[in-house]
């Protein structure tokens, strides 16, 4: 399914400033608990199970996600930005697909 992530990162920050990052990605997060109305079978689980944020290739924050996280998973967290660089955000689906996006930040 089309999953274009949505990420909010300030464009600029002071060195050592702690910024807030907000992320959202569209995904049904099929929990594996719902039943198919017609057949009565359980609809198999299919979720984003891992989210990681890297800054200049170093891990900042990650989340191990279980089916109890709501659809269109939202993650908000912080980062103490040491210098200018690039954030990379990666979401991994149960089926192995990876979705990612990048954002640059300038540190004065």
């Amino acid at each position: 399914m089309a999953s274009k992530p949505r990420v909010k990162v300030p464009k600029q920050a002071a060195a050592g400033e702690v910024i807030t990052i907000k992320t959202l990605i569209s995904h049904t997060m099929e929990s594996g608990q719902r039943k198919d109305r017609k057949t009565g079978d359980l609809i198999p689980r299919k979720i984003i199970n891992k989210f990681t944020c890297y800054f200049n290739d170093q891990e900042v924050f990650s989340a191990d996600i279980d089916p109890a996280v709501s659809s269109n998973p939202y993650m908000e967290f912080s980062c103490k930005v040491p210098e200018s660089g690039t954030f990379r955000f990666v979401w991994i689906d149960d089926d192995g697909s990876e979705y990612s996006t990048e954002k640059k930040i300038t540190v004065q």
């Binding site: 089309a2 274009k4 992530p5 949505r6 959202l24 569209s26 995904h27 269109n72 939202y74």
Partner: peptide, 16 residues
């Protein structure tokens, strides 16, 4: 607009 979960679908629509 970043808290609003509807914008995940709007991101897809922007690409569409």
């Amino acid at each position: 607009d970043f808290e609003n979960p509807a914008f995940a679908a709007i991101e897809n629509a922007i690409a569409q």
